[in-house]
Computed example of a mutant assay.
Amino acid sequence: MNKDNDTQTIVLGDVEIIRVVEWQGPFVPGRDLVPGADTRVWKDNEDLLAPDHWDPDHDLAVLALQTWVVRSAGRTVLVDTGVGSGRERPGSPHFHHRQGDLLADLARAGVRPEDVDTVVNTHLHADHVGWNTIDADGAWVPAFPNARYLLPAADDHHFGPGNTTGKGLGEDDRLVYEDSIAPVHRAGQAVLWEGTHRIDEHLTLEAAPGHTPGSAVLRLESRGERAVFVGDLLHSPVQILHPSCSSCFCLDPDGAATTRRRVLERAADQHELLIPAHFAGPGALEVRRRGTDFGLGPWAAHRTSEDDDRDV
């Protein structure tokens, strides 16, 4: 997949949002990613989807793997941490033994591991927690030594040893917990939360179940400007146009659809910038009501590192 090393920044009120892209490119057929949306749905919306979100020549959804750095109230917050490097993920060919370096990408954005105050995992799937930890002489340890890791309690129970039945778990899920979550607990850096959790005066986590039992959204409000980081409630703009369609990765597709519609309604009504985990292209956009449905509004305008160079 294609790497995008350029640092992109959005400023909302007193909060700076920095987008760090690990990779982006064609992933899987659109109809496989969003089973409720067949190829006709993608073709009917080709003008909105291609080329940033769909490769029509090969019928492949285009996704990004990215971390969002949020500088708020003197804190440096990471929203999701990608796949990690050198992980055992035998059930996930795209992630198995993948080699990457998010820490180097963060360094290019001016973020050192010791600078990070808070890590938000919107949920505990493999591609959202992988850089929670690093390999230190054969042992997994937290990658961000000074950070509190905010973990949804319901996901920690589901994916961790609290799920004594093992229902809904695969081997990859167990491996993810062992190398990316359990070490954070052992280091005393894990904070389990449920319902809502306020990080600071601008940032609040809210439960948004369906994709996983503990899926969360992170809401931002500063000086009248708003955004919502929605994790995997959305994998493609197709799901804005057809919010009843959940991804193939949703553990509770009906619950995810209910949550998705609620979040989209609020985003449209309160003019929240919608920031999904995996949208390629500009990565974030506004949502508009279209009767009882939704449409795509303007995409986010980023300030890039090249812009900063031109200002010097």
Rank of each mutant, 00 (worst) to 15 (best):
F294D: 01
L175D: 07
P152V: 03
I134S: 06
M1N: 08
F279D: 01
P276N: 04
Q24I: 04
Q66I: 00
P237I: 06
P90F: 12
V287Q: 00
A256Y: 01
P298L: 07
P26E: 08
R260Q: 01
A143P: 00
A64T: 11
D52V: 05
R75E: 15
L12R: 07
P298W: 06
S222G: 08
E201F: 14
D252Y: 06
H125R: 09
R112K: 15
L273M: 12
S222C: 10
P237V: 10
G25V: 01
P298N: 12
K167R: 12
D200C: 11
A300T: 05
M1L: 11
S222N: 06
R223C: 14
W299R: 14
D14E: 13
A208D: 02
G195M: 12
L103E: 08
A182N: 08
R19A: 10
V120C: 09
E22G: 05
P298S: 11
S305E: 15
G214W: 02
V41F: 10
K43R: 14
D52G: 02
P26F: 09
G195D: 09
P209R: 03
H96G: 10
P298I: 05
D14I: 11
V191H: 12
Q239G: 00
H197M: 06
V79S: 07
V11D: 09
D80R: 03
R223N: 13
A154C: 09
E306R: 15
P26Q: 08
I275N: 04
I10P: 11
H202C: 04
T164M: 14
L203P: 12
V141A: 05
E171S: 13
H271Y: 11
Q8D: 14
V116H: 07
H235F: 15
H97P: 11
E201S: 14
D127K: 04
V77M: 00
A104I: 12
R226A: 03
R303L: 11
E221F: 06
D32S: 15
N132I: 01
V77C: 03
G291M: 02
A139M: 13
A207G: 11
L65P: 02
P113E: 09
L264M: 00
G224V: 05
P113W: 07
R40F: 12
H158I: 10
